[in-house]
Design a protein around this nucleic acid. Structure first.
Length: 631
RNA sequence: GGGCCCGUGGCCAAGCCAGGAUAAAGGCGUCGGCCUUCGGAGCCGAAGAUCCUGGGUUCAAAUCCCAGCGGGCCCGCCA
């Protein structure tokens, strides 16, 4: 069995030994700082020392003597080192066990028993009036990896993308196109989503600084919400055009969805109305009679402990002009996610995705969508939206969300630009010396995901062609595309979600070191060995490993499910990316030192290479990295 | 005014939530090696760190607590 199972066995045996000595304590196991000391360790002796006033070294000695090593078949010994109790694997036995586990489980390797849940993951959530940029891409990649991961573990996962088609951003584009007669045709060379982003940047300020146009915008929002009129039809068509472009970008990165939820449909389905009524019944909303929010429907939040110190904790749900705010609609939408509302969306098939699955979209003319509600609703949103997400969470509680349900805002830090990159894309010299430049759609200061993909692709294509001058153009393009997408995905997911990413183009096109191409290169060179060996191998009886590189690789492979188990608790997807790189590092060191094919084929080493490929492949599936046998 | 996040070699960064062993992965960059054996997008080696500062808790602190400093963000009839 793998590391996860063996740590559990050790924990159990240590606990038994401790109890046999008449003590009671929680036993924790960990990895020693270096493998000279052992493979699994516990500091339980120190805990007992504190709790019972005994000497750690002495109690550790007693525990070691009380442990029945016969039960721990894969271990060679256990010893007391200054109070630390260290277990050491028998390398041959553990290697055989790990390799057979991997070879027999294949694509299932890494899974562990779970309590299966229905999980809804919402990600991407770009306003449908602009192209995806590297910030929304971080959102989409994190969400996609989460979805792939939770599916891999065996959960039932529904991936949705919320289309904010009734907000003020789209309304501004509609004012520009519909009333100010800005043409709908993008100029040569621009996709529709890129074009609409430019129109938004150009007209947003104009509209908001002009009272007449602002009134028009408010009217547009109202019309869009009402539906069944010329403006709402026009707006839906506009948004659909943008969303199609955004989807093409997402697909290029291997990101797919199950359902698109349109904000206007939150209103038209009656879900919004239901949610407001529910809050009214509970006495949690009121109409403001004075001050800046006069005439608005507010939700009362001043009674919530964590909002106590805010200047104005109550939040607007319906504006004085009768239109709904984003938060208002999001509360209603969240009540649907968790199955609190009896109202249903109507949905229909919209597009066929390149992964073969069709994409559903909410639509007024669709069929009723049968979704019983998720146990857990994960919303991937950037940190700036923490406050409104908390509002949603508390509103759900006020509506009577059962404690078995969980609303989980999955927060991550944004992507900003380095001064260098910001000044390059805007030709504004003054930005050059800044360390951080935040992107802004309104200012047109954004780095689009497509543009990044093009730049990375060019670099990778040139490199691939140099290495394979005789390969067909089709192959070169396909492989380069997979490498480019993986490269960008990896760079976005390997960083801790709480860290601000300062994006710099020069760094983004790197192919060496801690990069996606490095991982895929490693995978491909392992494929070459298996191919050349030409020997089927599905199990091993014994191994003759004698190098530390072989042993390190076995241990790394064995740790996969242990890493996934931790990730399932923290939902920190970067830990899976970091593990995957460690795994590649171990393989490359092994590769240099340990030939598999010499006079004949070393069967044990070949089994190790195959096990590596299976493990790495499963990790790639979770990270959304294509498994290429040649790059 | 209130709140959240980040601070680890020149730069980027793992580890922090669940504290341990002589205090610390990896990458970029710098320097030196390795293609007549499975792909050099690789490997091996060297130099480079007051883990922001000061207190505290503890047998043990990069990790937990408190205060401060520096950077980013949120508190809108935007989303």
């Amino acid at each position: 069995m793998g590391f996860l199972e063996e740590t559990e066995k050790v924990r159990f045996e240590v606990k038994k030994a401790v109890e046999s000595l008449g003590y009671e304590v929680e036993v924790r196991v960990e990895e020693p700082p270096n493998s000279e000391l052992g493979d699994i360790a516990t500091t339980v002796a120190f805990d007992l020392a504190k709790k019972y006033g005994v000497k750690p070294i002495e109690i550790a000695e007693k525990i070691v003597n009380a442990i029945n090593l016969d039960v721990l078949e894969l271990f060679k010994n256990v010893e007391n080192v200054k109070g630390f109790i260290n277990f050491r694997f028998d390398p041959n036995k553990y290697s055989v066990s790990v390799l057979n586990e991997v070879l027999s489980k294949g694509r299932e390797y890494g899974k562990f028993p779970i309590i299966k849940k229905r999980i809804l993951i919402e990600h991407t959530n770009s306003n449908p009036n602009k192209a995806l940029h590297i910030g929304t891409l971080r959102n989409a990649v994190i969400g996609d990896v989460l979805a792939r991961f939770l599916r891999f573990l065996g959960h039932e996962v529904l991936v949705v993308n919320y289309i904010d088609d009734s907000g003020s951003q789209v309304a501004e584009n509609i004012v520009a196109h519909y009333f100010m007669k800005v043409p709908m045709e993008p100029p040569e060379g621009l996709k529709f989503d890129e074009y609409s982003g430019k129109v938004y940047a150009e007209y947003s300020d104009k509209i908001n600084k002009d009272e007449e146009l602002k009134k028009l915008k408010s009217e547009v929002v109202r019309k869009i919400e009402e539906g069944g009129n010329e403006i709402s039809e026009f707006a839906r068509k506009f948004s659909e055009e943008v969303v199609k472009c955004q989807l093409e970008t997402a697909w290029a990165f291997g990101i797919f969805y199950d359902l698109l939820n349109w904000e206007t449909d939150v209103i038209r389905s009656g879900i919004f109305e239901w949610a407001i009524k529910k809050l009214e019944e509970k006495g949690e909303v009121y109409v403001e009679s004075k001050g800046v929010n006069k005439g608005c429907l507010m939700i009362r939040l001043r009674d919530v402990e964590e909002f106590k110190n805010l200047k104005a904790p109550d939040e607007v749900l319906i504006r004085s002009d009768g239109t709904a705010t984003y938060v208002g609609k999001d509360i209603a939408y969240a009540s649907w996610k968790l199955g609190l509302t009896p109202r249903k969306f109507k949905v229909r098939n919209w597009l066929q995705q390149p992964n073969g699955k069709s994409l559903l979209t909410t639509h007024i003319d669709g069929e009723e969508h049968d979704f019983p509600g998720a146990d857990v609703a994960i919303t991937v949103v950037d940190k700036r939206q923490e406050y409104p997400q908390m509002v949603v969470k508390h509103a759900l509680k006020k509506m009577g969300m059962p404690p078995t349900k969980e609303y989980y805002p999955y927060l991550y830090e944004v992507v900003a630009l380095s001064g260098e990159t910001a000044s390059e894309i805007t030709s504004l010299e003054e930005l050059k010396n800044k360390k951080v430049v935040h992107m802004s759609g309104r200012k047109g200061l954004v780095f689009n995901a497509n543009d990044l993909l093009k730049i990375v692709f060019q670099k990778i294509y040139d490199e691939t062609k140099k290495r394979h001058p005789d390969k067909a153009e089709d192959w070169l393009r396909k492989v380069s595309m997979h490498l480019s997408a993986a490269s960008i995905r990896y760079s976005l997911v390997k960083t801790d979600k709480n860290n601000l990413i300062i994006f710099d183009v020069n760094d983004a096109v790197r192919l060496e070191g801690d990069t996606g191409p490095y991982l895929q290169y490693t995978y491909a060179r392992a494929c070459r060995i298996v191919e050349k060996a030409g020997v089927e191998i599905n199990s091993v009886d014994e191994v003759l490993f004698e190098t530390s590189e072989e042993w390190d690789l076995v241990k790394q492979i064995g740790k996969f499910s242990w890493v996934l188990n931790m990730a399932s608790e923290t939902l920190a997807m970067n830990t899976i990316a970091v593990y995957t790189r460690h795994l590649a590092d171990s393989f490359n060191s092994f590769y240099e030192k340990c030939p598999v094919i010499t006079d004949g084929v070393r069967r044990d080493r070949l089994a190790l290479v195959k096990s590596f490929l299976i493990t790495m492949g499963n990790a790639f599936d979770i990270l959304g990295i294509e498994k290429l046998s040649m790059i």
